[in-house]
Structure formats: C-alpha cells, structure tokens
C-alpha cells in the first residue's frame, strides 16, 4: 500500500467499491427479511422455533452485509476495522443477553410483574 496517494480516489477503500457486491447485499438483505416475514406470519412454527429461525436469518443478513458492504476481511487495509468489529461482538452480546437474564431472574425472585 502506497503511503502517499497521488489522488484521494486511489485510496484502497475507495477502490474497493463494487456494484456486484452492493447489489448482492441488497438482494440478500431484502430476500432474508421477506423470508423471515413469511416464517413469522405463516404460523406453522412454535414461538420459540420462529424466534430461533428469524434470529438465524437476521444473523446471516448482518454477516452478509458486513462482508459485502464494508468489505470486512483480513487485508492490510481492513484488518483493524475487522478486529474492532469482532471485539465489539462480545460487548453487544453481554449487554443484551446478561441484561435480559438478570431482569428475568429478578422478576422470578421478587414475583412482581406477573406476566
């Protein structure tokens, strides 16, 4: 990677733009959301398996978008974007899952809230 670009447009992050990948991200995202919608409204599955399946589809959509839109990979240009994104995942997971677990347990122990 040259450190002194002759033109800002030669920057590798500008040069990585790709019509095929952006169109793929669009099609993938939209198709998966429509499939999730059909699974949810179809009503053929139990609530827990519906949630599992739409969760899996959302995960595929997001991983697909992260790769196709942001080009997160191990190249010299993108390695630190990728590393910081990977390190953010456990923080997001801990925030959501532990908070939900804590409140559910709290509700169970103090017997308030009803539902």
């Amino acid at each position: 990677m040259a450190h002194h670009q002759s033109s800002p447009i030669d920057h590798p992050e500008i040069q990585s733009a790709s019509t095929l990948q952006y169109v793929s991200a669009f099609v993938l995202g939209l198709a998966l959301m429509i499939v999730s919608c059909i699974i949810t409204l179809g009503g053929g599955l139990s609530q827990s398996s519906t949630l599992t399946w739409i969760g899996i589809l959302a995960l595929i959509a997001v991983v697909g978008q992260l790769y196709l839109l942001f080009k997160l990979d191990l190249s010299k240009t993108m390695i630190w974007h990728t590393v910081s994104a990977v390190l953010t995942i456990p923080l997001v997971f801990i925030s959501i899952v532990v908070t939900m677990w804590m409140f559910q347990y709290l509700e169970m122990r103090v017997m308030v809230g009803g539902s």
Partner: peptide, 26 residues
C-alpha cells in the same frame, strides 16, 4: 410486519444507491 417491509425496501435501496455513488467515485 408486511407494511414494515416498505421502509425495509426504501432503506436498503437508499444504501444500494449510495453504494453505487461509491462505485462512481471509484
């Protein structure tokens, strides 16, 4: 959820168009 597919379509389209602006910049 069905009518919420429209904002999904609008936002994803906008992202696609901005991506294509990036290709034009390239």
């Amino acid at each position: 959820p069905i009518s919420a597919l429209f904002p999904t379509l609008f936002l994803f389209s906008s992202v696609l168009f901005f991506g294509l602006a990036g290709v034009a910049l390239k």
